[in-house]
């Protein structure tokens, strides 16, 4: 087997025996995740289904390193995830945008945190916004929320953003790809 094929077969993400429990206010233990195993390989699209409250978002947060498991381990590219993992992006159910930032500023924020040069951030963000068919000028400072949703583009925004973002989407990507 050559190196390329091996890289393709190696799991991107390896979740082994992950458990997560919370302490309830009355002192009892609430077990949310019990011995969860999941392997994700390059190119795979996996849907995670379950009733509300069944622990889907807890599992995703644990995979993204936003919460630490009470037991078991998450490995990303062979490395244990012990904090917010680089290369694992998470889109949240109840929260899509920082309401005080424009679309462009929202998209740029992730690159800003990685200290990319301004021109590079701008062009990459605009490309990404274009890709999902949004208008970067939306929510420009000074625009009143009362006016949002009146213009045609204003109506597109919630629909598009929600369509893409309201479901759980876990983007696992290697940098540069």
């Amino acid at each position: 087997m050559n190196a390329n094929a091996q890289a393709l077969l190696a799991p991107l993400l390896d979740v082994q025996g992950v458990c997560k429990s919370f302490r309830k206010p009355d002192g009892d233990e609430l077990v949310v995740l019990e011995n969860v195993n999941l392997t994700l390989r390059p190119g795979e699209i996996v849907g995670l289904l379950g009733r509300s409250g069944s622990g889907k978002s807890t599992l995703l947060r644990t995979i993204a390193g936003l919460e630490l498991p009470s037991g078991g381990a998450v490995n990303y590219l062979g490395q244990p995830v012990v904090g917010p993992a680089e290369g694992i992006a998470m889109v949240f159910q109840s929260f899509a945008l920082f309401p005080w930032l424009t679309v462009l500023e929202n998209v740029k924020l992730g690159l800003e945190a990685l200290r990319h040069p301004e021109a590079d951030m701008r062009s990459r963000s605009l490309k990404a916004i274009d890709l999902i068919g949004l208008d970067a000028r939306l929510l420009v400072p000074g625009e009143r929320p009362a006016d949002r949703g009146r213009s045609r583009t204003g109506q597109q925004r919630p629909a598009t953003v929600n369509g893409i973002m309201r479901q759980y989407v876990l983007l696992v990507s290697r940098s540069g790809s």
Partner: peptide, 26 residues
């Protein structure tokens, strides 16, 4: 501050002054 907003900040690795400027202070 909604928990998901905090998580989104962490997920983006928004830290330090940028975190204050873009998330906490607003």
């Amino acid at each position: 501050i909604p928990p998901d907003m905090r998580y989104a900040g962490e997920n983006f690795h928004v830290r330090g002054w940028l975190w204050w400027k873009r998330i906490a202070l607003p």
